[in-house]
């Protein structure tokens, strides 16, 4: 974790301690009951984050899951990069509205625009808006339901738009303070993927 996100995590711990003693300090702002707004504020204080991921995709047409692993990098507010290293090198980069895909050994680069692919955009925003702590963007695409505590929270995202609904049934993001530790996607056709992440300090 970079120093920025470390500071953020430290701040979060302090905040959590304060929240635990909330009664003693009265109704000081930011120290009320833990809610989505607070999680988002905490997440938005993170400017860069890196993690290693492993992902398993369960597809109906396959009798066993596809596994892959690599690194994820986020740079506030709108840059997200997923670099798959195993089984093959592949790169997915999202910058603002532009998506770049590099697939294959002699990478063939494709670029497309998120706004041309609303479903893809909804999917990208589930992770990107969460990382950025952008509650408005998140709620534009999903009905958001937060449960758990700052120590172990879970965001349940259900698409609000019919087109996205035809693709994604539900996305569950789990985390600890300003850190995301897992993303599970249930697709409308019954396929699903499970991704888990650990902070990458290298």
């Amino acid at each position: 974790m970079t120093s920025g996100s470390r500071r953020a995590a430290f701040a979060a711990i302090v905040a959590a301690l304060l929240a635990a003693h909330g009664g003693a300090f009265g109704d000081e702002s930011g120290a009320g009951p833990w809610d989505l707004g607070q999680l988002m504020r905490e997440l938005s204080s993170v400017h860069t984050a890196r993690a290693r991921f492993t992902e398993k995709r369960y597809l109906k047409m396959l009798d066993r899951p596809i596994e892959s692993s690599g690194t994820l990098a986020f740079e506030a507010p709108a840059r997200l990069e997923k670099l798959t290293l195993l089984p093959k090198r592949e790169l997915l980069r999202v910058e603002q509205d532009k998506v770049t895909l590099e697939i294959g050994a002699q990478p063939k680069r494709r670029t497309l625009s998120l706004s041309d692919h609303p479903q893809l955009r909804a999917f990208v925003e589930s992770i990107r808006a969460t990382l950025a702590g952008d509650q408005a963007a998140l709620e534009r695409f999903y009905q958001v339901d937060l449960s758990g505590s700052a120590e172990r929270w879970r965001l349940k995202l259900q698409p609000s738009d019919m087109k996205t609904k035809s693709l994604v049934r539900e996305i569950r993001i789990t985390g600890r303070h300003s850190e995301i530790i897992g993303v599970e996607v249930d697709q409308a056709d019954g396929d699903r993927s499970v991704m888990s992440m650990v902070p990458d300090d290298s």
């Binding site: 596809i66 997923k82 093959k88």
Partner: peptide, 9 residues
């Protein structure tokens, strides 16, 4: 391979 890639979906 394509199914496992970011473009898989």
């Amino acid at each position: 391979e394509l199914l496992g890639s970011p473009a898989g979906m």
